[in-house]
Design a protein around this nucleic acid. Structure first.
Lengths: 194, 194
DNA sequence: GAAATTAGTTGACCGCGGTCAATTTTAGAG
DNA sequence: CTCTAAAATTGACCGCGGTCAACTAATTTC
């Protein structure tokens, strides 16, 4: 699987991914059916499962690819000097994660590594996100009493929290940005006499 | 559904829940099959879906009930004066949430309200958890520059983060308690010159 | 180039959650 | 007690993800 020796294999796999992305573009992630993918791609159902670790496996690849393009963008930003900037820089990523409930669920489900030994592609984007934010925070005017890595992990925790609340019926009074601002200000700029 | 007028209805519903809990006790949450529940309970499949909003609906009820017993316990504790105490008081809840991957997934999926208008039972336990922790923090020697409610929301965010990492293959070097301690110390006791 | 091995593909089949028109049971009206 | 409308139950059926023994195509061996 990791070393598709034959051209045939690579072609089949590429065709399946391409077909899937077409369906996703047309109907959204949640509407993707494996049956439709294989029918449209013109292969048997079993072939699909020979190439991917199930529907979730394909989703991981496709979603992780998308997340990585957003992280590529984010990486190009200079270190944000305000929390508003910080939020603005990761907002595209957050926006994508929250466009579809199904996508958010898949991401959450795979944010830890899927299998032992092998860390899944979505889990990798979480690691990468922490790295990107940690690098930012190294050159930012926020609290310095803890490591940038820990600070970045906290940012991630609050991002997830804010996104989860976004799908919650109760707290629709506040926008996601406002909630994030409150969280991150309290996390990155604690105003406490030490 | 909310007003089971007939005794028959209440009996059927109770029998289904009882049966389900028996199966869960014997095989775990993830092994529960609707088919097995209805067969064991001696009712038709359609009946199950007339009583619950699907398998997930039943799971919500059963899991939320369990979460609430842990919150009942937690509520009886006095306000913790150290972070270790705080962690100790909430650990039974965390322990339950992380015993089965499936349970954690269900909880996460329902931590926001399931449907508009109606807030689901698991989402309610999240609200309740924030309230319990907020009440604790009001009488605790932690930072006071932000509201107890916001502080408690942050605790919840870090709890979720720590639990998610618990299922992650990468970070098995650290125990969940250690990770929580690091997070909550940074959150509740920021040591920054203000 | 034929035989043997390995890689890739196929589609009938299964498990399981969920639906719904038909049927039975119950509650209330006359 | 009977008739009727509402409530509850039934089980055949469906959708869809996933499996696997059989089959075909490519690669290696001699």
């Amino acid at each position: 699987m990791l070393k598709p020796i034959q051209d045939r294999t690579r072609a089949t796999r590429a065709k399946l991914i391409e077909t899937a992305q077409g369906i996703i573009a047309a109907k959204g992630y949640g509407a993707l059916r494996v049956e439709e993918v294989v029918q449209t791609a013109g292969v048997a159902k079993g072939t699909f499962f020979a190439h991917f670790a199930g529907k979730d496996g394909l989703m991981e690849l496709v979603i992780a690819a998308r997340l990585n393009t957003f992280l590529d963008e984010a990486e190009r930003w200079p270190a944000p000097q305000t929390i508003d900037d910080l939020i603005a820089h990761i907002m595209p990523l957050i926006q994508f994660m929250t466009t579809e409930r199904y996508v958010f669920d898949v991401i959450l489900r795979h944010s830890g590594a899927a299998a032992r030994e092998e860390i899944g592609p979505i889990a990798q984007t979480f690691t990468r996100q922490v790295d990107v934010v940690a690098r930012w925070l190294a050159d930012s005017p926020f609290r310095k009493d803890i490591s940038g890595h820990l600070l970045a992990e906290g940012v991630q925790a609050f991002l997830v929290q804010a996104m989860a609340l976004h799908f919650c019926a109760v707290s629709n009074s506040e926008t996601m940005e406002d909630r994030l601002l409150t969280y991150l200000d309290a996390w990155l700029n604690p105003r406490v006499a030490s």
